[in-house]
């Protein structure tokens, strides 16, 4: 017993030493709060009531690091990174497409896809942008606006000449409501549009809340033409040269992979990076 007791003491001494060392070395984040940059009203990703899946992942990360989360809230629009991460108001973004130029992204922790959303009762079974039904149906797409850019399904449809039956929904949505981007999915459920081509994590989450059963199917082709991807890997991100923190995040992604996957599954995030049997 004495040996056991001594051993326990020794262990706690080591832990304490590590924590103390931690505060002086590059790993100061072990004691400092985890400072996360996030949108206060962007379910299913984040909101200020901490209901989004990125909120849950941030909480898991904070627990893993033995600290708590401290949020800097900023609408995830133009200037988001500039005013938050780059401005050093916070240190970590939980979700960004891998290889985004404006920040240093980690290895990805999930890969999702744009999806077709339809009412199951309609039996439309649309899988591809080349489905001839798309020439006549009312198709909801997310519009980014005028920032020299648009969502990949909007490009894929317009390069096929499918334009006049496209119905645009602002990707910003109605920011006064509790779930700004949900209108496009609700429009499918109500029958205002026949099909929506929308980003998977958003579509999966809101589809599950509708009063009717909606089908979610990854769009095809996943790489349209030579250059237009419909699937995106999502990473965490830090500022460039924030090496210690970046390393911690990558370790976390490896170590807590199963828990992260469970969180994503709980929000019905469509995945294209899991083996088939693990997909829902």
């Amino acid at each position: 017993m004495r040996r056991g007791h001594f051993f326990a003491l020794f262990v706690s001494f080591v832990v304490v030493s590590l924590r103390v060392l931690g505060t002086s070395g590059p790993g100061t984040i072990a004691r400092d709060p985890l400072r996360v940059c996030a949108d206060p009203n962007n379910l299913p990703f984040t909101n200020s009531r901490l209901e989004g899946f990125e909120n849950k992942i941030a909480a898991l990360l904070a627990r893993d690091l033995g600290t708590r989360v401290e949020y800097t809230w900023f609408a995830q629009r133009r200037g988001f990174l500039r005013n938050t991460l780059t401005a050093r108001a916070c240190d970590v973004v939980i979700g960004l497409p891998a290889d985004t130029d404006a920040a240093w992204t980690t290895k990805p922790y999930y890969r999702s896809t744009y999806v077709f959303v339809t009412r199951r009762s309609r039996k439309l079974r649309i899988r591809s942008f080349d489905d001839p039904q798309l020439r006549d149906l009312r198709i909801g797409v997310e519009l980014v606006g005028d920032d020299s850019a648009n969502t990949p399904p909007a490009h894929a449809l317009s390069r096929r000449g499918i334009v006049s039956n496209m119905v645009g929904f602002s990707v910003y949505g109605d920011y006064r409501s509790n779930s700004p981007p949900s209108a496009i999915i609700a429009a499918v459920a109500r029958g205002d549009v026949d099909v929506a081509a929308a980003w998977g994590p958003m579509a999966g989450y809101f589809a599950a809340q509708q009063p009717v059963v909606l089908d979610i199917v990854p769009v095809q082709p996943q790489l349209d033409g030579r250059f237009l991807p419909q699937t995106f890997s999502i990473s965490m991100a830090t500022r460039r040269r924030d090496t210690a923190r970046h390393e911690r995040l990558e370790q976390f992604i490896d170590r807590r992979r199963n828990e992260i996957d469970r969180i994503l599954a709980g929000y019905h995030v469509p995945r294209v990076d899991l083996p088939l049997e693990a997909r829902r």
Binding site: D39, N42, P44, F45, A75, Q76, R77, R78, F80, G95, L96, P97, D99, T100, D101, E142, V144, D147, S148, A149, N150, T151, P152, H155, V171, Y172, G173, P180, P181, W199, P201, M202, F227, L228, P229, F232, I234
Partner: peptide, 20 residues
């Protein structure tokens, strides 16, 4: 010049655009 495409992210939604 307009060239290439670059993935970007807004309101949780990835999109692509020309590099201007």
């Amino acid at each position: 010049d307009f060239e290439g495409v670059e993935a970007n992210y807004i309101a949780g939604t990835p999109f692509v655009g020309a590099n201007v």
